[in-house]
Design a protein around this nucleic acid. Structure first.
Lengths: 224, 224
DNA sequence: CTCCTGTCTTACAATCTTGTAATAATCGGT
DNA sequence: ACCGATTATTACAAGATTGTAAGACAGGAG
C-alpha cells in the first residue's frame, strides 16, 4: 500500500483528495503547509508527494527544492492556474509531473501510478545471455549461480555490460580500471584480466560468446 | 542536440510542431502514421518520441506498445481529446507523459525536457558526507580520493548507502553478503567487516560518523 | 607459406582478502 | 560501581588477487 504525502492548504480539496486516494488504495498523509509538510516528510518515508504550488506559508517550488535536496521521491505538482510559466518552473525544481486543476480523477490516479512505476523501476539488471549483473547489490550470477568476481573483474564486467555492442578500446578500459591508481600498469595486464574474466563468465573461454576481441582495437560485449 | 521522433498525421499541426521544436534546439523527424513511424524508429536512435493517439492507420497505443517492446525511450502522448480513459490507457502501455491539446508551447517544451532529464539521469551517485559510491562504475571515493574496497566491503557499503537512515539488522546484513555461499559464516565475521569498512571510510574509526551501531539490533548509515 | 604483430596463456611472487579465534572494550541494567 | 551481554579490536593462516614476465598462439600482409 503506497504512502502518499499530500501538501495542500485548501481544506475542502484536501479532504476530497484524501478520501478519493484512500478509496483507490493509497495511504495518504495530509500536511497543511510548507513547514508542516517538510517536517512530516523528514519523519517518515513516502512513495510519492503531491504538492500544491500555492501554499499560504510559501510557494511549492521551495518545498520541492527542499525535498530534492534529500530525496529522489517522485513529486507531482498540483496547480489551480493554467499558468504555463509555473509549469515550467515546476519541472526546473525537479518535479516529476504537473497536473492542472480541475483534476480528472482517473488521470490523477494514472499519473500517480506512472510516477510510482517509473521510480521503482530503478533496480535495473545488466544481462548478457545467461549472465546477470545487479549493480544495486554488486552481485554477478550465471545461470542463477553466483560468480564471485574480484573488485577489478567486477568493474571490468560492469564496463562491458554498460556498453553493449560498443567497442571499448584497450586504452579506454585501462583508463577506467586504473584512473585513480596513478601508477603505470603494464601493457599486458589488461589481457590477463580479460582472460580471468572470461574464465569465470564464459562457458568456453577459448571461444568467448560474450567478450569478443576486436583485433587491433579492443573488445566489445555482445548484446543480450 | 536531442533527436525527437514526431508521429502525427495532421499535416498542419505537424508542421507547426516541427518548426517550433526545431527553433527550440531539437532535431525533429516527422512520421505520418503508424507504419511510417515504427519503421523510422527502428532505423535510427531517438531521444524522445511524440506520439499522437489518433492515427488514421491505427491508434497510438499500439505504436507505443511496439516501441516499448524494443526500447525504454521516453514516449509522450499527444491527444486532441479531453478523454480521460485515453490518458489512463496511455500510461498503461508505458507512456511517460500525456499532453492534451491545445498545447501550451512552453509546457510542451518543459515536459520534453523533463522526460529527457529523467531518462538520462541514470548515473546516480550514492553519497554520505565526504563519501561517494558510483554503482555504475563500482568505484568508491572519499574526498575525491579512491578508496579501494574488496568485493565484500563494497557490497556491504552498497547496502548501507542504498538504505540510509534505515536500521539494518545483523541478520539482514549477513544474509545479503553471504546468501549464495551456502556455508555458515561465524557470528563475529560481520563485526570484523564493519570494522574493516570503518577503517577505510571513516575519518575516525573509533567514533564512526557514517556507520552507526544500534546496540542489540544492528547498524545504520546516516543520511547525507 | 613466412613473418610480424597483437593477443592469449601460463606461471610466479608480493600483497590483499577472507574467515576464525582470542582478547579487549563498551553499553545498559541493576 | 558491578555484571553480563554485545560489540570492537587484534592477530593469524589459508587462500585469492594483483601485476609482471616469458613464451605460445593466431590473424593478416606480403
Amino acid at each position: 500500500m503506497p504512502a502518499i504525502l499530500l501538501i495542500e492548504d485548501d481544506p475542502a480539496l484536501a479532504r476530497s483528495l484524501v478520501s478519493y486516494l484512500n478509496a483507490s488504495g493509497y495511504t495518504v498523509l495530509h500536511a497543511e503547509g510548507q513547514t508542516d509538510g517538510l517536517r512530516t516528510f523528514s519523519q517518515q518515508r513516502f512513495d510519492c508527494v503531491l504538492l500544491d504550488v500555492s501554499l499560504r506559508d510559501g510557494n511549492g517550488f521551495a518545498v520541492c527544492t527542499a525535498i530534492r535536496a534529500q530525496s529522489q521521491v517522485p513529486v507531482i505538482f498540483l496547480t489551480a492556474s493554467a499558468d504555463e510559466a509555473a509549469t515550467v518552473a515546476g519541472f526546473e525544481v525537479g518535479a516529476d509531473d504537473y497536473i492542472g486543476k480541475p483534476f480528472r480523477p482517473l488521470e490523477l490516479l494514472a499519473r500517480i501510478k506512472n510516477a510510482l512505476r517509473k521510480h521503482s523501476a530503478a533496480p535495473r539488471l545488466l544481462t548478457c545471455q545467461n549472465l546477470r549483473l545487479d549493480p544495486a547489490r554488486g552481485i554477478v550470477t550465471k545461470n542463477g549461480q553466483e560468480v564471485f568476481l574480484s573488485a577489478l573483474e567486477y568493474r571490468l564486467l560492469l564496463l562491458f555490460l554498460s556498453n553493449p555492442e560498443q567497442l571499448l578500446t584497450r586504452e579506454r578500459l585501462a583508463d577506467e580500471l586504473w584512473t585513480f591508481s596513478g601508477e603505470f600498469v603494464g601493457d599486458n595486464t589488461l589481457n590477463v584480466y580479460i582472460k580471468r574474466l572470461r574464465d569465470k563468465i564464459e562457458d568456453d573461454p577459448q571461444h568467448p560468446q560474450i567478450l569478443k576481441t576486436v583485433r587491433g582495437l579492443g573488445y566489445k560485449a555482445v548484446q543480450g
